[in-house]
Design a binder for these strands. Structure first.
Lengths: 345, 345
DNA sequence: CGGGGAAATGTAAGCGCTTACATTTTTTTT
DNA sequence: AAAAAAAATGTAAGCGCTTACATTTCCCCG
């Protein structure tokens, strides 16, 4: 059997070509690649040689069409442009890679419609499982996923009462702990800067957490100002300017995340307010920025990488059917740093 | 024709089911979905109704197997855990979405072998085109891509002399401009903190840029210390500590990127050095951190989003064959901020 | 009202792979 | 050494879709 010479540049070898060159059936070639132990070493070597010679690599579409599984997990995050998701998803990717699976990442820009579309796109692409951020979404889309038998794992949230298993932390009680710390310092005029609460259960839970703490402390929380805004440093700054302009201005501003908090700190300083002497500011997430800014941010530390790793494992268990589909709670930690102090007199 | 009732939960409708229910051929259903103008409104409505009723959604693997294209672009970035890539790639995703294409993102953790593997995986998945960061990699992998006829666009770098078209900026001359600015302030004892140069042409180019500037200024650059380290804030800090411990310590430290520079600034301050009075520090990239830190970082601003958008367009042109495959140069800007000053006496 | 051409639809052959089942070869057992 | 069991390989039927080509339907014009 003489070997092929010089492929024309647009000839892409297929399984059948490999079979022909190595003188075996396509089934054997397939087995060489997917279950090498089932084929004689002698045959295998011959086949692998042909694979090498032809520069063959399998066509994934054909593979997953025929095998009805894709070894692919899909994830939809609100945006990559955000350290906390990027870090977590990187961990997911690494963990899945270890299991031999591939991660497909799409981002929804916080738009529910786009998210639905992306979910369908990932399912169409044969995703064996889907990772989503937060519980809140249309029931219809969960129905769709159920009907397609695509397992779903929710992350960045933990709520076992929800229909889908989740791997994450309790946003509400984490923020409650933060608020208690603020109250303990003696603050009573408290305001919040939050991400938009509609379509975002995490933002909602965090606001609720603050309310919980105030209520428990016997403070009327109906009068707390909650300023909702975009997820950027600038927006956080603008929000703070607005809040301090009101009277009486808050002595402490609890922010829904670190990005908003950093914006708030910078804006306060620009307005000539000292942090924390004149105004205390807290964040949530504990991203790098939190430690770099002066004063360093008091915030809630979230174990993003760990969360990613555990979510990946959980989802893979569900996909392979090798384990129960239960929720996993992770714990957050308060990081008390310079931006929180007692209120001015 | 009575309609199906209550699907068993693991029945997944196919094109053929839709065809049967709506009483047309599979070809017509396919056309309804892909070229609606070719089919009579009346028929189309009937088909779409069936699609709705069955909850049909196309199988992507079958689609791309049959059509021999996937409307998918693959991108491999060193890591998601890095604001500059995350931001650029987000822009790529948005732009491709506008064109009706999907982006698949994988990360290589700066490991060439992993990158090769990922490239093959993306090609196997039917990626119509591939976006890569930087030019430096095995010729063999470019061969592979050529043989498969998969267009490649390189970004985060610009070098028309390289085999593949690139959309980016000239790292060398950008850094040279930065170095000239440092020299203009009177600095002569200059050190660098750089990412590892092996397998990273961008890091290499930046170091070269500094050398260029020094040589032009008539300074012997062979004596410049270049400290190579990991891409983290901590590593940047450790590097700075080492550098200032040497004697004579540098009066200015040029960092290969902002993350290293932020680490350096914080470490200098921890050592009791004032920035820039005792030591000047510069960065590269202009990420958010650069403006938040005190003093703000003098750095090179890179238009990441714009780069992502243009790279996406360029690649899509190559994929659809609707335009020439040429390189595009973007321009960087110096951002002179507090971290750079004249040397101490 | 009939013929011709355009528009709409149908037919059926793959796309490259996996896998159940059939067949052949090798090994083990008696 | 023959029969039975096990291992290796082959055969061929799809997986769900697209699309070239064939056929039917529709519309316009003389």
């Amino acid at each position: 059997m003489t070997s092929e010479i010089a492929q024309p540049s647009d000839f892409v070898p297929t399984l059948a070509d490999v079979a022909r060159v190595s003188g075996v059936s396509t089934a054997t070639v397939s087995r060489c690649l997917n279950a090498p132990e089932q084929v004689l070493k002698k045959t295998r070597d011959r086949v692998l040689e042909a694979v090498e010679e032809l520069g063959y690599s399998p066509n994934f579409s054909a593979q997953s069409l025929a095998a009805k599984r894709s070894n692919t997990i899909g994830a939809i995050i609100p945006t990559m442009e955000n350290a906390i998701f990027a870090r977590g998803i990187q961990a997911v990717q690494e963990e899945l890679g270890r299991a031999g699976a591939t991660l497909l990442v799409a981002s929804s820009a916080y738009k529910p419609d786009l998210e639905n579309e992306q979910i369908r796109a990932l399912v169409a692409r044969g995703a064996d499982g889907i990772l989503l951020i937060g519980h809140a979404r249309d029931l219809a889309i969960y129905d769709f996923l159920d009907r397609r038998n695509v397992p779903v794992c929710v992350s960045w949230a933990y709520d076992p009462s929800q229909p889908k298993p989740s791997v994450g932390f309790d946003n509400r009680s984490a923020m409650r702990a933060m608020a208690e710390e603020v109250l303990k310092r003696g603050h009573r005029r408290i305001a919040m800067i939050s991400a938009r609460q509609s379509d975002n259960d995490r933002a909602r839970d965090r606001v609720q957490g603050v309310r919980d703490a105030m209520r428990t402390a016997g403070i009327d929380c109906s009068e707390m100002t909650v300023f909702e805004t975009d997820y950027t440093i600038e927006a956080g700054g603008a929000a703070l300017s607005t809040l301090v302009a009101s009277s009486p201005g808050p002595s402490a501003v609890i922010c829904g995340n670190d990005v908003l908090a950093v914006g708030a700190v910078k804006a306060a300083q620009r307005l000539g307010l000292r942090v924390p002497e004149d105004i205390s500011i807290t964040g949530f997430d504990d991203i790098e920025l939190a430690e770099v800014i002066v004063p360093a941010l008091t915030t809630v530390h979230v174990p993003h990488r760990e969360m990613g790793v555990l979510a990946a494992r959980q989802l893979w268990k569900m996909v392979t059917g090798s384990g129960p589909a239960d929720s996993l709670e992770l714990h957050t930690k308060l990081r008390l740093r310079g931006s929180l102090g007692p209120p001015a007199l």
